[in-house]
Amino acid sequence: MAAATSEQTADLTVQEMARRSGFSEPTLRYYEKIGLLGAVARDESSGHRRYGPATVARVEALSCLRSSGVTVSGMRRYLDLLAQGDSAAAEQRDLFASQAEKLAADIGQLQLRLTYLRRKADLWDARVRGDAAAEHRATEAVLRVLEQFTH
């Protein structure tokens, strides 16, 4: 527990920040280069990056956005709106609502693909068992799922 506490309060290295955020080290360097992270402090003796609490919080927020499918330009828009404070609250709401709708659509497509894979597994299981009636039902189920892909 002491290690976790010291990692939370001490400045993080790029390796620690990568591990904590899920971003690769090159991604963190790129985000710094394009201005998403602001100025990242450097260790005076080595010149290595040191991520302080404010930068850690920013990277963690960007990690949540990125894992939700937000693009770099979307992250930039979020940060620009964040800098405007409460005056941009409606735009922030719209940004997040729009991304939530997109993510919901993506989840729907993934659920459809999952259903397809399960019905195909059912079909092959029926074939392995030599159950012609179950194979026929599974084939029909696969065709119903395939129809949903085209709508």
Rank of each mutant, 00 (worst) to 15 (best):
4 A>M: 15
6 S>W: 12
7 E>S: 09
9 T>D: 04
12 L>A: 04
15 Q>P: 01
17 M>N: 02
19 R>S: 12
22 G>P: 04
23 F>M: 03
24 S>T: 15
25 E>A: 15
27 T>H: 00
29 R>D: 02
30 Y>R: 03
30 Y>A: 01
38 G>F: 06
39 A>P: 10
41 A>F: 04
44 E>R: 14
44 E>D: 15
48 H>V: 11
49 R>P: 01
54 A>K: 12
54 A>Q: 11
57 A>E: 13
59 V>N: 08
62 L>M: 10
62 L>E: 01
70 V>E: 03
72 V>A: 01
74 G>P: 07
76 R>V: 02
83 A>I: 06
85 G>W: 12
85 G>F: 10
86 D>Q: 14
88 A>K: 13
93 R>Q: 08
94 D>P: 04
94 D>Q: 12
95 L>Y: 02
101 E>N: 09
102 K>Y: 11
103 L>T: 09
104 A>G: 11
107 I>A: 14
116 Y>M: 05
117 L>S: 13
120 K>R: 15
121 A>Q: 08
123 L>Y: 13
124 W>Q: 13
125 D>R: 15
125 D>H: 15
129 R>E: 09
129 R>W: 05
130 G>C: 09
130 G>E: 04
134 A>R: 02
134 A>L: 05
135 E>H: 07
136 H>E: 15
139 T>E: 12
139 T>A: 15
143 L>N: 07
149 F>C: 00
150 T>G: 01
151 H>G: 05
151 H>Y: 03
